[in-house]
Simulated scan of single mutants.
Amino acid sequence: MVGHNLFYGNKGEDIATKFLEKKGYKILERNYRRIGTEIDIIARDKSEIVFVEVKSRNSRKFGNASEAVTTYKMKNIIQTATAYIMEKSLYDIQVRFDIIEVYFNEKEINHIISAFMLS
Rank of each mutant, 00 (worst) to 15 (best):
D40I: 12
F7Y: 14
Y32T: 04
I109T: 15
I113Q: 12
I42G: 03
F62H: 11
N5I: 14
F104R: 04
T37I: 01
A83D: 09
Q94E: 12
H111T: 00
I113W: 00
M117R: 15
K107S: 14
Q79R: 09
K88R: 14
F62S: 14
K11W: 11
E87P: 00
L118A: 08
D45N: 13
A115I: 11
K46W: 05
N64M: 10
K11I: 13
M1H: 15
K11A: 10
M117D: 15
K11C: 10
L118D: 10
V50R: 02
K75G: 06
V54D: 06
A115W: 07
T17H: 00
V2I: 15
G63I: 12
S66T: 14
S56G: 15
N64L: 06
D14F: 08
I109H: 02
F19S: 00
S114H: 12
G63H: 09
K88A: 00
F116D: 02
H4C: 10
N10T: 15
A65F: 13
L28I: 06
S89I: 05
R33G: 01
M1W: 03
Y84G: 01
I100W: 05
V95F: 06
S119R: 12
F19Y: 15
N5V: 14
R60W: 12
S56M: 02
Q79T: 13
K11R: 13
K22R: 11
N58P: 06
A115D: 07
S89L: 01
K61D: 14
G36D: 02
M117N: 15
T80D: 06
A68I: 05
I112R: 05
I41S: 04
E48R: 10
Y103E: 10
R60A: 03
V69W: 05
I15M: 11
F19E: 09
I77T: 13
M74V: 09
G63M: 06
I113C: 04
E67P: 04
E13D: 07
S47R: 12
Y103N: 07
Y91L: 02
Q94K: 15
Y103A: 10
N31P: 03
N58A: 06
E87A: 02
Y103G: 01
R60Y: 10
R57P: 04
L28M: 05
G36A: 01
I112C: 04
V95W: 04
F51A: 01
I41G: 00
G9S: 14
S47I: 10
N31G: 09
R60L: 07
L90C: 05
R34E: 13
T70W: 04
R30S: 08
S66A: 09
R34S: 08
T71M: 09
T71H: 09
A83T: 13
N64P: 08
M117G: 11
